[in-house]
Design a protein around this nucleic acid. Structure first.
Lengths: 299, 299
DNA sequence: AAAGTTGCATAAGTTAATTTTATACAAAAT
DNA sequence: ATTTTGTATAAAATTAACTTATGCAACTTT
């Protein structure tokens, strides 16, 4: 659909280098030069500013790149839509997902694998970044669907609720705290706790959940801050601290009895996951993925 | 932007014929066959149903054609937007207009010529059909901007008011009716009249204008119905009838004194012209054309 | 029903476009 | 000053696209 020449241009724009683009496309560097030259003659304007060893998109180049991105997505949607007419098992396409940690690690893999079984020829990728970057990637048309924890208000984004996630306090089964139950929210103040790093979506949810019980995060006896869910889990196994984790992320550890949930009266820390898409670009592939995701988690 | 192969496909889809497409594209018929075959192999499905001497788009083919149409418009917009960055006089692009008779004959030519002076390399075409067909052409993405007399309510169309048009009663300067003035609306019932054919937008406006004065079209002494404004004008010049015509269409005849306006108390027949565009597709080229059109007529 | 027409498909040869190899040239880094 | 990094250009080689010639099937005509 998009001409070869323009695909070369896109690669150069992404790599910000003729030679790197040539390597990525498995063609020689002069071939790239000739293509760009051809385009520049066609549009009668420079598309890249050559600044010594750097290149940079000109205004015209940036405009062209943006338009090509939208065309590329139409192309990918079309590939899928055509192939799905004939046979689901033969449907080809590209689906780029983006999600923040919990969703990317503990929620989406299950959906992706199910989706892959139904549409084996669809190429699925998953970008694992924080909500902010996921949103930006969506706006930049780098991903087709994002899964985030916050429901924003952007007018050119559609928010679609996916599932509820519960965050619970857990500790190692060897931890003496694991015995007595149930606790009151106030009891938290006496416990040594370990939490995720600043900026994590989980931490934000915890903060808001505690606030509803008039507890500030700073009032807790925070012993350690750990970067990443897995690190936190492993730390809890070996320490006497209590941690807050999404139930989605500790399914395995609960099953094996390695971690125990501390039950609290009147303390519910919840958050929602949302699908985000660009408004007006809810393709057939997007729809089917979201439908399957919902059917898996909302039985 | 769109590959050659796909452009050939589009031509075949439009012409509904491999050989006619080949003639339109100035290539041989086998070249077309090879292209279509290539696409069908790529998409792993037939794009045309070969039914004897006819061909017809398959479901997949129709889907592909629709997507390619939207991409083609992105491509054309891009050509314009890039070239206008550097120099207005060098801006290339395609602007397909559609309008019903009065606008197409007496309003748009002036705008088109002014626009052509400012953007000499933009290719402008004008489709002259009735409002209904103009709307359909817009929906089918055959035209970029339509000018119609009715403000509809379609949710995927943007309506933008352009200018007011006044319809007046006129007759030849030799007609005795041309002397006495002013008339009352009721006097119309005594006059021999000539009007446009059924289905014309002008006729519709007249009908509604008269209705406001409690006069039905059928109450008039309709002597003749003529297809087309020019025919009606020429008829009036040679007859004793009174006709209703848009002031826009008789500027020249009034100037030369060939036709005279009959002034009526309390009888105003007006209609509005609207620009119609597909929602979300108001390209830079569209914007500039509409802006110029408004500046010409709304000083 | 036979012959002619219309229209797409296929094959072989030609032409045009793309790519590679080799090399030049400019700017930045060492 | 020399080396490194990165793009531009030219000529040769490769590949893709096109044309001519011809076949075949379906529909028309007589």
């Amino acid at each position: 659909m998009i001409s070869n020449r323009h695909l070369v241009f896109m690669e150069v724009a992404q790599q910000k280098s003729f030679s790197k683009a040539s390597q990525a496309l498995f063609i020689s560097q002069p071939a790239v030069s000739v293509h760009i030259k051809g385009l520049e003659e066609h549009y009668k304007t420079k598309l890249f500013e050559r600044k010594g060893l750097q290149i940079e998109l000109t205004e015209a180049g940036q405009l062209l790149y943006n338009r090509l991105l939208t065309v590329l997505h139409i192309q990918q949607e079309t590939e899928f839509d055509i192939s799905v007419i004939h046979d689901q098992q033969q449907a080809t396409g590209v689906l780029n997902l983006g999600a923040s940690t919990t969703a990317a690690l503990y929620i989406l893999p299950k959906v992706m694998s199910a989706f892959h079984r139904e549409y084996p020829l669809v190429n699925i990728t998953l970008l694992n970044r924080n909500s902010e970057i996921v949103l930006q990637a969506l706006l930049d048309k780098e991903i087709n669907i994002g899964v985030t924890e916050e429901k924003g208000q952007l007018s050119n984004i559609t928010y679609q609720s996916f599932l509820k996630d519960q965050i619970v306090a857990v500790c190692s089964k060897h931890n003496p705290l694991a015995r007595k139950k149930p606790y009151q929210p106030k009891d938290l103040l006496q416990m040594p706790v370990a939490i995720r790093e600043r900026g994590s979506g989980t931490l934000e949810a915890i903060k808001q959940g505690l606030q509803r019980n008039k507890i500030r995060l700073n009032d807790l006896q925070i012993k350690v801050r750990l970067g990443g869910t897995e690190a936190l889990k492993n730390f809890l196994l070996e320490s006497n601290c209590v941690g807050f984790l999404s139930t989605r992320s500790i399914a395995k550890e609960l099953q094996h009895g390695e971690l125990t949930i501390l039950s609290f009266d009147n303390l519910r820390i919840e958050r929602n996951f949302y699908f985000i898409q660009r408004k007006g670009e809810t393709s057939e592939l997007n729809k089917r993925f979201i439908k399957m995701a919902k059917s898996i988690y909302n039985y």
